[in-house]
């Protein structure tokens, strides 16, 4: 029975855990919400993640608790996605860059300033989940490439390239939508 289970050691184990964990509830929920794409399931996933984190708190060796917790969250999300995602939900990731790259950059810049949140949100949601995850962790949680690579268990180069590709795609998508709107 070598699994180190933390809970139940004393009356305050929940209190101690919550003190470490609850400050990161929003980060956990945000990641889950972006990955599973709806409120109800995100709550379930987060609850399950916290429960798991509580059970394995004994194996937490100090360091960045948020990273440790988010690793559990992402893992739980992917398990959920494997069980619940229907193949039809996966959009094709069209990475072809349309138009003249050099001339578009000034235009892009202008359009970006007018972009509204709804457009951006839809665009990010349409990213494939592996690309979306890295973008969220980078932009919303401010994690370094190395930290993301550790959490997602992929090479650093993969993080770098997925981020670059996700951003290119987002730019392309946003400028297209904005052009369409203004037309």
């Amino acid at each position: 029975m070598k699994v180190q289970s933390f809970g139940g050691s004393d009356a305050e184990s929940v209190v101690v855990f919550e003190k470490s964990a609850l400050p990161h509830l929003d980060a956990a929920y945000n990641l889950a919400r972006w990955l599973v794409k709806n409120e109800h399931d995100a709550e379930d996933v987060v609850q399950e993640s916290f429960l798991r984190a509580f059970k394995f708190y004994g194996s937490f060796r100090g360091g960045d608790f948020r990273k440790w917790l988010l690793t559990i969250v992402r893992h739980t999300c992917y398990t959920w996605l494997k069980e619940n995602r229907s193949p039809g939900n996966v959009l094709p990731f069209d990475e072809a860059i349309h138009g003249d790259v050099v001339a578009a950059s000034n235009q892009e810049l202008e359009l970006m300033k007018n972009a509204d949140v709804k457009l951006v949100r839809e665009a990010v949601q349409d990213l494939p989940v592996e690309f979306r995850e890295i973008l969220i962790l980078r932009e919303m949680e401010g994690l370094s490439y190395k930290e993301i690579a550790d959490m997602a268990n992929v090479p650093l180069g993969t993080v770098m390239s997925r981020l670059a590709r996700a951003r290119k795609w987002l730019q392309d998508r946003l400028s297209k939508r904005l052009k369409r709107r203004e037309a």
Partner: peptide, 17 residues
């Protein structure tokens, strides 16, 4: 763009812990 956890989620989690 950042999703904050709903208030009820905190209570749910405390209860389950």
């Amino acid at each position: 763009l950042y999703y904050n956890a709903p208030a009820r989620l905190r209570e749910r989690i405390s209860a389950s812990l």
